[in-house]
């Protein structure tokens, strides 16, 4: 079923997306996910379940890892949001991409944007994660293809390479 029409009038919402100040006109209860994809054409954020179970729609909201399908856009007022598109500016991105490729951390790719965001979020807090940290840090992101193991390996490999630098 499609998203329900927003109730009440649309309001103007200001926030920062990937470092840029953005202004959108939206119903306050519209999902941040829909505003990112439809109004801002940031299609890298994916919808998997629409109820906060799968983590495909993960974004960073003021540095917190959130499921954008569960965030009413009004709640993002004034916030700084980072989506997968904004990740290319991150120092961690190149080692993570390389490690995902080398380890087979991506199969179909639909969970990858969320996995990358979760991995960046983890590695920023915990630059030298133990296997259990990786397992827990990614536990909110579902992958149906890999069985996760190759994703864990990729995150561990990227962390090692970053620490060495």
């Amino acid at each position: 079923m499609n998203p329900s029409p927003g109730t009440g009038t649309k309001c103007q919402i200001l926030f920062t997306v990937n470092g840029e100040a953005r202004k959108v006109l939206a119903h306050p209860m519209e999902r941040l996910l829909d505003v990112l994809r439809n109004d801002l054409a940031l299609k890298g954020t994916k919808e998997g379940c629409g109820e906060g179970e799968c983590g495909s729609c993960s974004v960073l909201l003021d540095g917190m890892l959130v499921n954008s399908c569960l965030v009413p856009v009004v709640q993002a007022t004034g916030a700084s949001i980072v989506t997968i598109e904004g990740m290319s500016a991150q120092a961690l991105m190149i080692p993570l991409q390389e490690a995902f490729l080398e380890c087979g951390g991506t199969q179909c790719g639909i969970c990858t944007p969320g996995m990358i965001l979760a991995a960046v979020h983890l590695l920023e807090k915990t630059p030298e994660p133990a296997p259990a940290d990786i397992r827990e840090g990614l536990a909110g992101n579902l992958c149906r293809c890999t069985g996760y193991q190759q994703i864990f390996e990729a995150v561990a490999m990227a962390a090692r390479r970053m620490v060495r630098k």
Partner: peptide, 13 residues
Amino acid sequence: VLAEGQITGGVAQ
């Protein structure tokens, strides 16, 4: 690498 990914993913499923 891809073959191993097919096995781990299939076992998980």
